[in-house]
Design a protein around this nucleic acid. Sequence first.
DNA 1: ACCTGAACACCGTTCAAGT
DNA 2: ACCTGAACACCGTTCAAGT
Lengths: 176, 176
Amino acid sequence: MAERRTRADAVSNRARIVQVARELLTSTSELPMNAVAKAAGVGQGTLYRNFPTREALLAEVYKADVDVLVASAPDLLAQHDAAAAFRLWLDNVADYARVKRGVLAALEGGELAAGHHDPIAGAIDRLLAAGRDEGTLRADVGAQDVLLLLGFLSRPEAAERAHHVLDLIFNGLRVR
Amino acid sequence: MAERRTRADAVSNRARIVQVARELLTSTSELPMNAVAKAAGVGQGTLYRNFPTREALLAEVYKADVDVLVASAPDLLAQHDAAAAFRLWLDNVADYARVKRGVLAALEGGELAAGHHDPIAGAIDRLLAAGRDEGTLRADVGAQDVLLLLGFLSRPEAAERAHHVLDLIFNGLRVR
DNA sequence: ACCTGAACACCGTTCAAGT
DNA sequence: ACCTGAACACCGTTCAAGT
């Protein structure tokens, strides 16, 4: 199977689409596909061949952020006990959610979350498993449960109360 | 100020709009305004004068359900201690959410929830206050926090795990 | 091989014209 | 006083035609 080199213009088009989408998302939380195509200077067809769904585009836009979030889980586990690591990781998620609301939108129920190997779910699983071994976090909690609970971060009103609500959630996941 | 009798056709139009919307929501969770107008046999203008936003229409459709939910709070408090009443009330909410997903959509961030006198928030406040007096529920929890946490019920994947996630939430709201 | 952009099917919402 | 429905401004998505 011969490796086929993608045309140079195709490569730059794809990169420009992602860059433009990222910029559009800094001003508003909406992302009209036609607006992305126009701002990127490509036809709608080009946009859709690169990213068949908006979820796919969002996943690409926030890939770097998600990678950082996922990578921070083992780092925190190396420096703290599992319960503290989990609590700190939740704060990381909240910080990302505050700055870039779209991260959560991409995360929940989309390509990222529904994919076979959702990296975020993997990070949560790791933290939960450590807490279970330690005996500080409830053994009957799955990554799915945590993802559902974190969904509140995507609501606009969440910003002010995020920290407090995370405390309540964390309190609920600890063993009594 | 003389009471003005609304025209008979106007009254029946309004009732038919609500009835048709309710029926449409049993099959799908979407509610296109034009589809409502067409199914109700009225012009779009009539629909919009009665219900300026979709939220307003949803609020009317689910008014009866919300009333039942709100009324159940004092009933539960009369028969159980505050913590048990709160737990049972949460189950009531989950049951409604399972059957009619739209109740939650109408509840969260919409006319119902954002209104000056959100009845749901009132019911939650009442339950929380009783739990605080009793010393079983955390004093630093507000109705807003609970509403944010309950938002997960509107997600399609929530159905199977709703009961378990509610346990986690309840666990987090209790005093240690 | 990749691209463009007209075109289609759908929204929500408004408002002039009717009764 | 209330209603109708054409019309407008927007979506997402497809696909024939180009290079």
